[in-house]
Design a protein around this nucleic acid. Structure first.
Lengths: 190, 190
DNA sequence: ACCTGAACACCGTTCAAGT
DNA sequence: ACCTGAACACCGTTCAAGT
């Protein structure tokens, strides 16, 4: 990439981060280009779709989450590894506001620029779930897709100002529903 | 209201129901007016905001839900009354697509045309919850607002085509988390 | 190679002019 | 009273023209 192009690319990304953080994921792309001091066509050249821009913004976070899931696979507490990872995913999925809907759409749409990172992350989470299930610590009828749906639901709650104050409580409620009673009280049935 | 105005009002409502059902709650109001064969100003005269139009479309459903909650208050199964009512609310809240976000916003915004019906409904649900809690059948740390948040979360899942197939399963998962074990197995602790 | 911004087809909202 | 549609200020997306 030519030096001037690289500079525009980086600057657009930085501005887009600000604008999306302020206004959510449906913010005006025109506004992004304007605030970056760049022609509208330059934005479209570097990021042909809104998803491509989001992907560039979020890739690092997705990669971190995938990496964290892999590391946790060897931890000695499969239940805690799963819940802690879910909490991190929820945090990423509700910032910027509205991004979780893009993620859900990306999983179904192979052509979305977000598809690959979302699917990879979903698969990494599914492995944490299988491991917890194998130890009898998570409900056995839960599927990988359910994990993503519950993360999405919790991120949606975070996105609604009127509901956000109870989001942490509801996370614990749902985490409790994912885990079996065995994982919360090992002595119970032994 | 003059007869011609009444006719426009009714026709706009019928067309809006179709358009919102097809395209979700963010559908073009211009398109609604166009398909109703009516000037754009006529739509805005009858429904000054999108919320006013939604309210006219959904009022009957909201009223039914409020009435159903009141009837169930005398049923002899507080737990089942709560869960069955929640299921009905989720059904209303995800049709048309996206309406649940409007409902969440309306609860926080006193000036929204949807505010009154949402608050009334939320309160009716909260009473069902209190009753179930009084019998020890529902988690005691749950609040009325949490009920609404969970309904919203489930409706959001319904709205995502990739997640909808598991929505019923996840409803049962969350309903199970709301209820206490006592309500699922009364003999357990007696 | 890369950038620009006009052009096109939309949108929500308002309001002067009509009946 | 009520209706109409032009007008205004936006938007996403494309692409000919420039450097």
């Amino acid at each position: 990439m030519r030096a001037d192009a690289q500079k525009n690319y980086d600057h657009l990304l930085a501005i887009a981060r600000d604008v999306f953080t302020e206004q959510g994921v449906d913010a005006s792309l025109r506004d992004v280009a304007r605030r970056a001091g760049v022609g509208l066509g330059t934005l479209y050249r570097h990021f042909p779709t809104r998803e491509a821009l989001l992907e560039a913004l979020l890739r690092a976070s997705f990669d971190e989450l995938t990496a964290k899931a892999k590391e946790s696979e060897t931890s000695n507490s499969p239940a805690e590894a799963l819940v802690s990872w879910l909490r991190d995913v929820v945090t990423v999925a509700h910032s910027p506001r509205g991004v979780v809907a893009s993620m859900a759409a990306a999983i179904a749409d192979e052509n979305s620029a977000l598809h690959a990172s979302c699917v990879t992350m979903k698969a990494a989470g599914a492995r944490l779930l299988v491991r917890a299930q194998a130890s009898g610590l998570a409900r056995s009828d839960l599927e990988g897709a359910d994990l993503f749906a519950l993360v999405g639901a919790l991120a949606w709650i975070h996105d609604q100002p009127s509901l956000a104050p109870r989001a942490d409580y509801l996370f614990r409620l749902i985490a409790g529903a994912i885990l079996t009673s065995r994982s919360r009280n090992d002595a119970e049935c032994d």
